[in-house]
């Protein structure tokens, strides 16, 4: 359930993608997203599909693991596809009473469905191949230029780091408290909505108490290590572009140009 969501998880490895600089990867994902919405015909979409498959293969993430993450969004994709199919006005293909499937609808559905799946795939590849720390370092670094206009780059990145760091801890803790309360006869699975909401109290009270306590302790531990914000801080792992990033950059440019050109096919 909770554990099946792979977006945000990191899987250690040594593939080409794992070794890329996080900034390159973040920019590449942004360019990829734009390209995905620039293409407007099946040639372009097909090319993006092939490209995405290649990216997944290069990352050397076990396919079984990867597809389990995708399964989590199946419902959203289906909903989008169905809504697009029935709601888009145009030339009707099939009519079922007041419902009709239009040609434009099918076209839209295929496009939106594919785009959604690809989007989630490539973003999860980003997080699967990048440690949360590297990711936030990358974001902080990319946001630096905007600091002059008041974007709190370091604070944002630090908040993200902390949030990402504590998600697994919270999941683990939820699991632990749930077990302890079920051993005392708590029932989280049956009953109507109201009963279920009430059954959550024995879970939520300890969970929140612990989270607040932990936040306190973390603040103290950070202060004890002389944390005082981002000014003048140096890094153990300074970000450094390498030849790989140049290759990836060129590939990105080609992708963007290619995506733009497919519009004229």
């Amino acid at each position: 359930m909770l554990k099946d969501i792979t977006i945000g998880q990191y899987l250690p490895g040594s593939s080409f993608l794992h070794k890329l600089d996080p900034r390159t990867k973040i920019i590449a994902v942004a360019v990829y997203m734009i390209s995905l919405f620039v293409v407007n015909n099946f040639w372009g979409l097909g090319a993006m599909l092939v490209l995405s498959l290649a990216i997944v293969l290069i990352s050397r993430i076990p396919l079984r693991f990867f597809f389990r993450g995708i399964k989590a969004i199946v419902f959203i994709v289906l909903l989008t596809v169905i809504l697009q199919m029935f709601m888009t006005p145009g030339e009707p293909l099939v009519e079922l009473g007041f419902l009709k499937i239009t040609k434009e609808g099918v076209h839209q559905a295929v496009f939106m469905g594919t785009r959604l799946v690809l989007l989630v795939s490539v973003t999860s590849i980003l997080t699967l191949t990048t440690t949360p720390i590297a990711l936030t370092d990358g974001i902080e670094n990319l946001l630096k230029p905007f600091q002059k206009i008041g974007v709190p780059a370091h604070e944002l990145a630090m908040m993200m780091t902390i949030a990402l760091r504590f998600i697994p801890t919270l999941v683990e803790e939820t699991d632990k408290i749930m077990k302890a309360q079920s051993a005392r006869g708590a029932d989280f699975e049956s009953g109507n909505l109201l009963e279920r909401a009430k059954a959550m109290i024995p879970l939520l009270v300890p969970l929140f108490l612990n989270a607040i306590k932990r936040a306190d302790e973390l603040a103290l531990a950070m202060e004890a290590r002389c944390y005082h914000g981002g000014d003048g801080r140096t890094r153990m792992k300074a970000l450094q572009y390498s030849g790989r990033d140049a290759i990836a950059g060129v590939c990105c440019l080609c992708m963007a140009a290619g995506a733009f050109l497919t519009r004229f096919i």
């Binding site: 632990k176 408290i177 302890a180 005392r184 024995p202 300890p206």
Partner: peptide
């Protein structure tokens, strides 16, 4: 459980 005071 270990550290059962969590369940209060």
């Amino acid at each position: 459980f270990q550290y059962p005071e969590y369940q209060l």
